[in-house]
Every structure is written in C-alpha cells, then in structure tokens.
Design a protein around this nucleic acid. Sequence first.
DNA 1: GGTACAATTAACATTATTGCTAATTGTTAG
DNA 2: CTAACAATTAGCAATAATGTTAATTGTACC
Lengths: 92, 92
Amino acid sequence: MSLHRTFKALSDPVRREILEHLKLEQKTAGEINQLFDISAPAVSRHLSVLKDAGLVRDYRKGKYIFYELKASVLEETLLWIANLKEQKNEEG
Amino acid sequence: MSLHRTFKALSDPVRREILEHLKLEQKTAGEINQLFDISAPAVSRHLSVLKDAGLVRDYRKGKYIFYELKASVLEETLLWIANLKEQKNEEG
DNA sequence: GGTACAATTAACATTATTGCTAATTGTTAG
DNA sequence: CTAACAATTAGCAATAATGTTAATTGTACC
C-alpha cells in the first residue's frame, strides 16, 4: 500500500470519520451509512477507497458486509510525518 | 490550522516532496521550482496551499521569497493518526 | 522613471473527486 | 423460483484540484 494512497484516503473528512468509528468497533456498511447524511453508494465508494488504501478490511457475513479498521498501514504514514518533524542535528 | 487543511495539503505528491526538500534547508520559490517539471505558477499555488495549512512560512529577502518548513502543525496530525493506531484495551 | 528579474495572481482547460439516482449482484427465507 | 433486503456498480452532474499561458506586482539597479 503506497504512502500516496494512504494520504489520499485520509484527505476526505467522511473517510476520516469512518475510520474513527471503526476504531471503536467493526460495523456493517449499513451501520456506517446511518452515521452520515449521504447516500449508501457514496459511503460505499468511500469504503472502497479506504480498502484500496489498506486502511480497512471487509468480510461478508450473510447479507451483511462488515468493515474493520486495519491501522497497520498507518505506520508508514506516521514515520513519514515524524521524519519531517525530526530536528536537524546541529554540528558538533 | 485545521486537521483538514493539513491532510488536504499532504494529499498531493508535489507538496509532500516540497516539504521533504524544505526539511533539509529553506529555499526560494525559484529554487523549489527548479526541482519540478511544472510551471512556476503551479509551484506557487502549491506553496500557497502549504502556507494556508501552516506547514511552511515565507519571508521576502529582496527579490526573493524564501520558504521554510514549519513542522509544528504536524503534531496534531501525528496525534490523530497515533490515536487511530492505538490499541483498544482488553477488559480486565 | 525604465529595464530586468522573482514571484504571484488571473483566466481558463482538463482531470479527479464526490455526490445523486437507477440498475445490478449477492444472500436469506419462504 | 420469487420476494425482500444489503450492498455495490453504472452512469451522470456538480465541484474541486491541478496544470497551462498571460498579465500583474514587488524589488533592485542604473
């Protein structure tokens, strides 16, 4: 999963909020949908972007498709940002 | 500076690369421009987005405008991501 | 003031993103 | 097989993002 995909995925407020909800517990697409004032297809697309970025995992259980957070890819992102923040060492 | 602006600013590869260069040393708009295969106005706009997000600071020195990294706003971003990664505590 | 250079802002074209409704796919239950 | 429900994919409209060239602004130097 590329750093670019991760940053792109995180650049949308709906997707960030989805991740925040999934941090608490896994949810079905329908449950996630109810959290927002946008259509089911719109949420579905956001979920697809998150999945492509490797930020969530989904699995079907009967009629329902569950989504759960997969935070491991954030490690790379965290490192990239931390590296930018890192102080330049003064000479000596 | 909002988390949203920061994430939006970081979602573009050119802007991320600009920040990486500025981490090493401050540069003029023209110097930054030479690092990319896009027009000066395009780079100027990217710099403006970074500035609005609070990720860089600029100051004029004669004909030149210098840009330097201002990594402090990344703290909030880092915390947001770290919080997502944070393990849920098991009961007991 | 007038020329040269650095950089930005203006105006516009192209592409990407986001949202909608309608149609399709997958699963359950009769 | 059919009806009902969950969710996605298809097709399209509106908006945002990114790039270009042309025009403008700011500074230095003669």
